[in-house]
């Protein structure tokens, strides 16, 4: 009995440890961004003509790139994009998606079906490719990257919101609130929205990690940004040719930063899946329609 309790506690500590570690990693990136200008002698743009593509050393712990710029400074500088772009896209996605989902969930009927089928149709194009095509169409700039990712993630939040509202609608207390004569705005603001918050917030880390991946993919292919930014995907693209020649650090270190940052977000998402509100299969941003809690998926087929 006591043994079992101890085991459970240990398990809990371990699981929380994952989420805690993830938060520490993200905070570490944020602290590094803030501290870099004062704590690190090499600015991200400064060229050191004496050491071009220099291997990692004490002077340049992560080496230098083809222009003799310190890679550590550039990787840290690139974290700004990793924070800003997903956050901005998420804000746009929730602002657009949540009202749509609310309307579909409350309205039901033809509006609900129309939105559902429209999202299903758009969802046929792999979201990564559609996001990239949108940016290619609007022209390369970070603002367009945010818009493209935000639009596609709005679908995810609209679906989550709609499912949540439908589920709440069938619960007694909403029925009671309606019967008590609450006006619609009060019903939505006081009774519905607060109960959907957990679900919406729970979706955030996974969507942030997706956004980060899309941003990097665009940078890597050369769609999103002009040359010479410190966005990690773009840094990897510039480092690739040197990687084949043996100077791997210019591409691999920004890549590892991407992996650690994205990994932290994924771990957060996982721990929310495990302990947070149960989610239906509305995920994403692609293939993510997986239910880790082990409930059967509702497959969304073509018909």
């Amino acid at each position: 009995m006591i043994g079992r309790l101890l085991r459970m506690l240990r398990l809990l500590a371990r699981r929380r440890a994952g989420a805690a570690l993830a938060l520490v990693v993200l905070a570490g990136f944020a602290a590094a961004v803030v501290a870099r200008p004062v704590a690190w002698p090499h600015p991200p743009g400064a060229q050191d003509a004496g050491s071009v593509l220099a291997a990692p050393s004490l002077r340049h712990p992560l080496g230098t790139d083809a222009n003799g710029r310190d890679i550590l400074a550039r990787v840290v500088d690139g974290a700004r994009y990793a924070f800003a772009v997903p956050l901005a896209a998420l804000a746009l996605a929730i602002l657009l998606g949540a009202p749509l989902g609310l309307a579909a969930g409350l309205g039901g009927g033809w509006l609900d079906s129309l939105l559902r089928r429209t999202f299903q149709g758009i969802g046929l194009v792999p979201p990564l490719l559609l996001a990239m095509a949108l940016v290619a169409a609007m022209g390369p700039s970070l603002r367009h990257v945010v818009v493209a990712i935000g639009l596609l993630e709005a679908i995810v939040f609209a679906r989550a919101m709609r499912d949540e509202v439908r589920a709440l609608h069938d619960r007694g207390f909403i029925e009671a609130a309606i019967a008590a004569g609450n006006p619609l705005p009060r019903l939505v603001l006081v009774h519905l929205l607060p109960n959907t918050l957990a679900r919406i917030a729970g979706e955030v880390p996974r969507q942030a990690s997706w956004a980060l991946g899309v941003l990097a993919a665009m940078g890597f292919v050369g769609i999103a940004t002009a040359a010479d930014t410190t966005e990690w995907g773009s840094m990897i693209r510039e480092g690739v040719e040197h990687l084949y020649a043996g100077q791997w650090w210019a591409a691999i270190f920004p890549g590892l930063a991407l992996l650690v940052f994205g990994g932290a977000l994924r771990v957060l998402a996982e721990s929310i899946d495990e302990h947070g509100p149960r989610r239906a299969a509305t995920s994403p941003a692609l293939a993510g329609a997986t239910d880790r809690a082990g409930r059967p998926l509702s497959p969304r087929g073509a018909g």
Binding site: G213, A217, I236, V240, I252, G255, L258, L259, G263, R266
Partner: peptide, 15 residues
């Protein structure tokens, strides 16, 4: 698996 999901495909290819 979680690490694999966070892995950008092009980074894995390059590694």
């Amino acid at each position: 698996s979680v690490l694999g999901e966070a892995m950008p495909p092009f980074l894995l290819a390059l590694l």
